[in-house]
Write a protein that binds this DNA or RNA. Structure first.
Lengths: 193, 193
DNA sequence: GAAAAACATTGAACAAGTTCAACAAACGCA
DNA sequence: TGCGTTTGTTGAACTTGTTCAATGTTTTTC
């Protein structure tokens, strides 16, 4: 039983050691090289993944070819296109490894099995989805009410560890601004100090 | 058993008539006059509500006093501050009736009871949260990639029924723009035709 | 270790959206 | 029915952010 996954689960629900092990057995480890894709637009998301090592970006590409990053997923995060995975329909997202990564993946079939056999797993994913939803609501409000400048500083404060692992282009795509403008913000902030 | 609630549930999971009735018995009907609040900032969200009649707005007020609308909830929608309700912590949202409204409410205690006794209810709320999360992701992407002009037109196309029931100020607060600018967009669109 | 590719920075011109102020129209209610 | 409040509109000046193009820097890759 992987420790990172065990702690991730234990943070939300309590499961017996035996059940934890059974749940764990439904996953299989998989490696992703930097720049390889966990999921591409058009594909049906067949697996949900728990990141053990590395870093992914989950993003959308709009009609003009501009990328919007929904979130970054480093160690201890889950990756999937929920919509595509749950409803077995083609995804409109990309999930790309930004570093060589290690993931525990579970198939749709095995996840249904887990839901069926372990009510606590159903609860676990309800709670996790609620939390990510609350976080996204928070981000939505911030995007509507704060300037890019403030959002950048908030990002740095919230994800200090990610800052060194991401290019400014990636951060700009997360903040919803052009990378040129982010460069100007950085310049301005540097001068202020 | 209320028909609107029955259909809302049946759309996602299947429950026996008996279980549906037992679940329904955990709710109580409540009336909200126009301009009254289902929830105010600072309060702990004690109930989750299912709107039978009327219309609510769920919004946040930022440091400058500007309101951001997270969503509108007409008939057949659920209302609550998930974060406050789940974690019993003070809310930073307002949920206000925009029309005289009728709501079925369930307390935190009764909802826990339902989760405990009916696994299908746990599943129901997992699925519903997933759906609202996917919808919010979609909206996040749109806000990052589309102009206010396009977002306004999309809003009209998506919620044609809400259009007549909301002031332009409310719609502007949802789109994340000033009401003056919305007025200019409307003017421009009217001229184009 | 060199060439190619991706990344970061800067400036100038432009587009999108805000703010403030003034006024007209519609609504709520006593 | 009328008065006060909220809502919608418009214009001018301003701020925030984009686009494009040029230049230098760092990373990949073979």
């Amino acid at each position: 039983m992987n420790q990172l996954l065990r702690n991730n689960i234990a943070r939300h629900v309590s499961l017996s050691e035996d059940q934890l092990q059974q749940f764990h057995d439904l996953f299989e480890p998989r490696l992703f090289k930097k720049k390889s894709y966990f999921l591409s637009e058009g594909q049906i998301c067949a697996h949900e993944g728990f990141v053990l090592k590395g870093l992914f970006r989950v993003y959308h590409v709009d009609a003009k070819g501009v990328e919007q990053v929904l979130y970054f997923a480093p160690e201890d995060w889950w990756i999937a296109d929920i919509d595509s995975f749950s409803n077995q329909k083609p995804s409109n997202l990309f999930i790309e490894a930004l570093e060589d990564s290690e993931v525990l993946v579970i198939s749709r079939k095995n996840k249904d099995l887990a839901y069926e056999h372990f009510p606590a797993i159903e609860k676990l994913f309800r709670i996790m989805t609620q939390k990510t939803h609350v976080a996204l609501q928070r981000r939505m409000i911030d995007n509507l009410s704060k300037t890019a400048d403030k959002r950048y500083q908030d990002f740095l404060a919230k994800y200090p560890d990610l800052y060194n692992r991401l290019s400014n282009r990636q951060i700009a795509a997360y903040l919803g601004i052009s990378h040129e403008f982010l460069s100007k913000i950085r310049n301005k902030l540097a001068k202020e100090k």
